[in-house]
Nucleic acid binder design. Structure first.
Length: 418
RNA sequence: CGGAGAGUAGUAUAAUGGUAGUAUACAUGCUUUGGGAGCAUGAGGUCCGAGUCCGAUUCUCGGCUCUCCGACCA
């Protein structure tokens, strides 16, 4: 992408009407724009990050054998009444059509996916089945807050699994936990697998929590083993001893990036979702559900990966891998030469499938280009200026030292520093 | 939903019961280019409604919006 062609939404100041860091920096760097409380638009750079997170999640869901579908946002009232959640779910957005009929805006999709699954599940031979989607969710939060961490509309991946029996559900659930660990690792996050209350769903649930001071959950976790529980089910204090290994416990703030439940028959039952087993008898279908907050992840990553100059995207989610800056000098012909060298590097790297942002803007001061580059936070920065001569300056966003290397070594540098 | 704070130009801010100022961003020109450059010129603003007042952006009331604390959090 040529930066001269990219609309710049970056600002010089932090927005005054945001206090959470993720919202402040993402708005200032031009990744997102707030439309309403808890409702954000994703701008070109921000959308690239979102798509990268989506890609990782999609690949791991597919590896799990799940099938991607896309369900509607608008849902029928009667299906929500069937489970009782039309009345019991207070965050449910309801819209009224011209003919006074009411509809739900999907906050989650059990009520929609079960009747869909019903169309393909008749026999034990049809199970297990995994269906997932990546879609905007709507929740009428009494208080949206913390930027992308708690929105009223947000992007979520939701997977629903269907099983012939509890044992199969449990084994799938274990595989889903592994897939989740892989996803968060690939995204550069260390997420704790935390036992949590089932809410209104069930007693079997796990959350994945990224420890960050801005998180709204409180996590009791062991200083040495993997024991971790949400404070809502464990009231231990810091320093109490771990029930598994007797090491001291820690209590930390965390942000929930994933949540999995064993639903069992809670939703299959109201819809009469059943199958015929090997003996020809009707059996109830067992279900699990598995969510990942895609847009929230973007906010969490911003909370975790930044310094005082701005964002520092992990390679897997960065909008571009490398940011090439062309700094202009007095000599116009030298400027032209530098620009064409940069364009040639740009073309070469792109031909190798590397995502490149080239700051080819004219009449922008060196200081502005450097400052904005740090703010936007691509993992690698290449500078061409009077100083760099026949070489280029290569710098990682996470390092303070830059080094001069040859043009021909840029690709090798990227390979060896991943 | 309870409590607190805040709404002035695209952004960030100042001031005032009587012509709303600055910075930045934007437009034009010239100069500049290693950490958000300089000069000149130009365009751009008091959330909405009611009340008090000769006059309200300012005071009062109501509303709307945003942020934070709490409650809530499939």
């Amino acid at each position: 992408m040529l930066q001269s062609q990219l609309p710049s939404f970056a600002r010089k100041e932090f927005p005054k009407d945001e206090e959470s860091y993720n919202a402040q920096v993402l708005i200032r760097a031009g990744f997102v724009e707030k439309v309403m409380a808890g409702v954000y638009a994703f701008l070109p750079l921000g959308l690239r990050v979102l798509k990268n997170i989506e890609r990782v999640v999609r690949e791991e869901m597919n590896a799990l054998g799940a099938h991607e579908i896309l369900m509607p946002v608008l849902g029928p009232k009667d299906q929500w009444q069937k489970t009782g959640r039309w009345d019991s779910l207070d965050v449910l957005f309801k819209v009224i059509a011209r003919d006074k009929k009411e509809y739900a805006l999907g906050p989650t999709h059990e009520e929609i996916v079960v009747p869909i699954g019903q169309k393909a599940i008749f026999s034990y031979r049809d199970l297990p089945l995994g269906l997932y989607q990546i879609q905007n969710k709507f929740r009428d939060e009494p208080r949206a807050k913390s930027g992308l961490l708690r929105g009223r509309e947000f992007l979520m991946k939701d997977l629903y699994s269907f099983h012939a029996n509890i044992a199969d559900l449990e084994s799938y659930y274990e595989r889903a936990l592994q897939a989740y660990k892989t996803i968060f690792t690939r995204l550069g996050l260390s997420a704790l697998q935390v036992e949590a209350s089932g809410g209104s769903f069930s007693k079997y649930s796990h959350e994945f929590q990224v420890l960050t001071p801005n998180g709204e959950d409180s996590i009791v976790h062991c200083s040495s083993c993997s024991f971790a529980q949400n404070r809502e089910i464990n009231e231990s204090k810091a320093g109490d001893l771990c029930p598994q290994c007797n090491s001291p416990l820690l209590v930390s703030a965390g942000s929930e990036v994933g949540n999995v439940f064993q639903l069992k028959t809670k939703y299959s039952q109201p819809f009469g979702l059943s199958y015929v087993d090997e003996k020809g008898e009707q059996q109830e279908v067992q279900m699990g559900c598995y969510g990942i907050g895609i847009s929230r992840l973007m906010g969490v990553i911003a909370e975790v990966y930044h310094d005082d100059k701005g964002l520092r995207w992990p390679i897997a989610v960065a909008p571009f891998q490398i940011h090439i800056l062309v700094l202009e000098g007095q000599d116009e012909s030298a400027n032209q030469e530098r620009l064409s060298k940069a364009q040639s590097l740009y073309t070469t790297l792109r031909a190798k499938g590397i995502e490149v942002l080239l700051d080819d803007r004219k009449n922008i001061s060196a200081g502005q280009k450097l400052t904005e580059s740090d703010l936007m936070g691509m993992p690698f920065r290449v500078v061409l200026s009077q100083k760099t001569g026949d070489q280029v300056e290569m710098k990682r966003r996470t390092e303070s030292q830059a080094e001069l290397i040859d043009f021909s070594d840029v690709e090798r540098y990227l390979d060896t520093h991943k």
